[in-house]
Design a protein around this nucleic acid. Structure first.
Length: 343
DNA sequence: AAAACGGGGCG
DNA sequence: CGCCCAGTTTT
């Protein structure tokens, strides 16, 4: 174990990437970057991190912002609950910790959106405290190096990995141990085509020795995504206004704004059928025409989307000036559409 | 314990 | 275009 720890950190000090969040490891920066990096590739996360930090440089500025503006910075990144939780947790810190980022594991993991991994990352990266940060990279590296041929999600395996990582803390700092393992997983011990010849610990890798690297880690199969049909109507009102609605249910895109949504009728539905649906919602519309249809794939749902155009003479509170559209966070399929309309 | 939650990238 | 990646909350 001592040899592995030393090889890892020597490699890391030499090969680690220069990343925006590594410039200054304040708890706030570590926290924001770790939330952004959940389910997100480093390359995509960089620009979002820079913009987020520019707009919300500290806990207070984030806490006092409108959730809508936090989601606007998050627009296009996906898993929007991360942004809502980040905003809520900033307020938790203001309300319960006097605006100062808490430094105990118990208090950090109590923050909305912070689970075991993120708590470990904050404690180790910001304060060099000995808490494992077990993410997908860590699981991949450790199951291979130690030859763990068991379901990686199983609680027993997670505890085993944690104890192996903790043992490495005897030989080097938790901060560098955690970060070097994650970096090794990202750069060398990749899911496909790992670069074993460049790996600093290839001589200590059980899976390499067994020729079982391609089999590890052992992961469960995912469920099939469900199919879903959505009709969106770009509804133009008087005086350069457009109808938008806030998604509020516990469903995809909560907190974001979309055009008028009609769900529950088939993809091939006629304009007449849509008209009767809008009538049910007491919205009188004219000139309804279909403009295009697209498929938007999410991990858990495949969305079949029809986009329509229509006009109306009504003007309720759901209508905003087209030029204000850019202030409203919207899901990926509508970013370019809204941009075009607002011009 | 299982399902829900986006979007990007690769072959 | 099918397949892969994956922490936290909710159910």
């Amino acid at each position: 174990m001592e040899k592995i720890a030393n090889l890892l950190i020597t490699w890391f000090q030499y090969k680690k990437r220069e990343l925006p969040w590594r410039k200054n490891r304040s708890p706030y920066r570590v926290w924001v970057s770790e939330i952004i990096l959940q389910q997100t590739k480093v390359e995509q996360g960089k620009a979002y991190f820079e913009r987020f930090m520019a707009q919300f440089p500290n806990i207070k500025s984030l806490a006092t912002a409108d959730q809508k503006d936090v989601l606007k910075v998050w627009e296009g990144l996906g898993y929007y609950s991360r942004a809502r939780n980040l905003h809520k947790a900033a307020n938790q810190i203001i309300d319960h910790h006097n605006g100062v980022f808490p430094n105990s594991h118990e208090k950090i993991i109590a923050l909305k959106g912070v689970g075991k991994y993120t708590a470990g990352a904050i404690l180790s990266f910001a304060w060099n405290r000995p808490y494992p940060a077990i993410d997908g990279n860590t699981v991949r590296v450790t199951t291979r190096v130690f030859g763990i041929h068991m379901d990686a999600h199983h609680a027993y395996v997670q505890r085993h990995i944690a104890s192996l990582i903790t043992e490495l803390y005897k030989y080097s700092s938790p901060k560098e141990i955690n970060e070097s393992i994650i970096e090794l997983g990202a750069l060398i011990c990749r899911p496909k085509n790992p670069l074993c010849t460049e790996c600093p610990i290839n001589n200590h890798c059980v899976a390499k020795e067994q020729n079982t690297i391609h089999l590890l880690p052992l992961l469960k199969k995912k469920a099939q995504p469900r199919e879903r049909v959505l009709h969106f109507i770009l509804l133009h009102g008087p005086k350069d206004t457009i109808y938008i609605e806030l998604r509020q249910k516990s469903d995809i895109w909560k907190g974001l704004y979309t055009p008028l949504l009609i769900e529950g009728i088939e993809l091939s539905a006629s304009a007449e059928e849509l008209l009767s649906e809008t009538a049910k919602r007491n919205i009188k519309i004219d000139n309804l025409t279909k403009t295009n249809t697209l498929i938007h794939k999410l991990t858990h749902q495949t969305l079949h989307i029809n986009i329509w155009q229509a006009t109306t003479k009504e003007r309720t509170s759901y209508f905003i000036k087209r030029s204000d559209l850019s202030n409203f966070p919207t899901p990926k399929p509508f970013i370019s559409i809204f941009k075009k309309i607002s011009e």
